[in-house]
Design a protein around this nucleic acid. Sequence first.
DNA 1: TCTATTTCTGATTAGAAAGTCAGAAATCCT
DNA 2: AGGATTTCTGACTTTCTAATCAGAAATAGA
Lengths: 215, 215
Amino acid sequence: MLEAVAAPPTRKGPQTAGRIREAALELFSRLGFERVTMGEIAAAAGVSQATLHYHFDDKACLWRAAMLQLSAVIAEEERLLEAMADAPPEVQLRMAMKLFLRISWKHPALGRIVALEGMAGGERLAWLDAHLTGPRNRRLAEIAQAAIDSGALKPFPAPMLVITLQAASAGVINLAPMMRVSFGMDPSAPEARQAHEQLILDAILGGLLTHPTTP
Amino acid sequence: MLEAVAAPPTRKGPQTAGRIREAALELFSRLGFERVTMGEIAAAAGVSQATLHYHFDDKACLWRAAMLQLSAVIAEEERLLEAMADAPPEVQLRMAMKLFLRISWKHPALGRIVALEGMAGGERLAWLDAHLTGPRNRRLAEIAQAAIDSGALKPFPAPMLVITLQAASAGVINLAPMMRVSFGMDPSAPEARQAHEQLILDAILGGLLTHPTTP
DNA sequence: TCTATTTCTGATTAGAAAGTCAGAAATCCT
DNA sequence: AGGATTTCTGACTTTCTAATCAGAAATAGA
């Protein structure tokens, strides 16, 4: 069988397929596609290695299934952005940024995946762009461009703004192990998370708006 | 033989060892430790696979040698930071930031390595912290802390400032493939590089200083 | 209960990659 | 030139991993 998503709870297959996808997402995002073995995923999901190949044709297929699951969750959480399509650009921008930050913290796997595959290039990145990151990036870029056109935001290239925001938000979360090693500090502690969010907002709203607002 | 650095040019060994280190650095930084095979490195350096094991005991040893080479270059380029240890904190901070950005652009391998290993954790990260990234991070944090103590910089945790700067500068460079796929834009083009640098400086100097200065 | 279908597993296979080694080729020294 | 040393290579071994498959266990439906 292959990548089924919804199913009657009486059947047991989809349930274990879900456990496998979760384990795969965690491992893939933390270590990258080839650092993870099918055996590790199987162990993490509590099934045999052959079971992985029963539910998913091959390793690449399992990777895509895990990403699709993440994609669905995130798309759902970003739904509310569409509801404010006619708010002033500056308001939309601020809202989008906060949502972006919140999602980065809530789904650390996303940022890790983006860092890993967005750096390596290749067909997995192409797939990600089509199914997960591309639409997000371009929607955010549109909002930034509108803010620039309205004169609220300094005229930097919108893609550069988007990627920088991406890098600065997810990057800090990704580099948690490094922060621990270099500074003995845990960035996922609530107060650190708070400081990080405030830092990004201050930097962008204070430094990049034409009429700075530091709330 | 093992990790020799300087040598008489008449001997041929160190020269090929250098070529191997360069090829290794490029590949390791682009793909990560385990995505790269010894065969690929050998091919890129134009030698046989067995030659790699003649010059370096094993793969991990080659990885460290490549990192050490990078480390030496960077340490040299950051030497001039020590010369201004008694300048006012704000001046030092601005200088350090610009140097940091310049080095990120000049040695893209550094940022990729940091992203890859800083995210994965493990013994390679520990080694990096001891030999390359740790000293840099802590020196930059000291400068940031001095700027905070002097009242020039808003009182965010210095480690958070450092890691965010790291993530925002290197991150954009790392994500070049993603920018190409998502926006068809090449961030390594001179004008993009310029915009990126200005963006970071504006964000930090405009948004995080207590008395903003936007030059 | 009994049969068919779904779900899962142990055993196995094929292939890739790191690392070893004996010896060839190149270079140095006298 | 000629022996000694450094440098390099092809062929091999070992280990690890993805993928396959026949069949066991569990579940559903009559």
